[in-house]
Structures are given as structure tokens and as C-alpha cells.
Amino acid sequence: MELTLAIAIGALTGSGVWLVLRPRTYQLVIGLSLLSYAVNLFIFSMGRLRLGAPPVLGPGGSGNPADYADPVPQALVLTAIVIGFATTALLLVVLLAARGLTGNDHVDGREPR
């Protein structure tokens, strides 16, 4: 499972970085989204991978912390997703504005000569 997750994070990061370095604004947005997925998975993995362990105490729970997954990274991921989502939406608006004002989708607003 560790290997699968590591490969997934690596693949997402690699494609994200490559796309961020591309000259089109749409590629930039997709690249940043992929990077943020990778980062979210990474934060999640920092709470150690556990199968079938609940993060919160349920009724009749054992009360032994060893039986539970670390809830903090899950909360962090939730916050990071919300913030990333909002800022990406904002970037999309700016991207459209830039497309409208400059007439092309190059990140510098003009085609290289």
C-alpha cells in the first residue's frame, strides 16, 4: 500500500510540476490542481497509513489511542482542500480575465517571438 501511495504521489507531483512549467494558463491551472492533490495525499500519509482504523472515538470505542488513526492530518487535508479549491477557482477567474484582456492564453499575455 505504501508503494502504491508513493507512486501515486510521485506521478501526480511529476505531472503537476511539468504542467506548471508549461506556457499556457490552462496547463498552469491543471498543474497546480494536480500538485495540490499530491500534497493532500502527502499530508494524509504523514499520519501513517492504517487500514480500517477510525479517526474519531465512536460509541463503545476502546479509548486506546493505538486503535485509532491520527485525526489531525485528516483535518489538515480537509482545510487544505477547501483553501486550495477556493484559490484555484480564483485563479480560473483571473485566467479568463487575462484571456479576455490580452487575447491569448500565454502566461505572459503574448506569444513568444
Binding site: 497546480l32 502527502f42 480564483l90
Partner: peptide
């Protein structure tokens, strides 16, 4: 402004992701 804003936002989004990686580590 929109062109500079685009660069500014992209750079800061990337920086925020680095921030998150650092915090997670």
C-alpha cells in the same frame, strides 16, 4: 494588473503547496 496578478497568484499557490509539504513533514 491582470498579467502581473496571474504570475503573483501562480507563484503564491506554488509557495503555499511547499508550505503544506513542510508542515506535513
Amino acid at each position: 494588473r491582470v498579467r502581473s496578478g496571474l504570475h503573483y497568484i501562480a507563484i503564491n499557490l506554488a509557495a503555499s503547496l511547499l508550505f503544506l509539504i513542510g508542515v506535513a513533514l
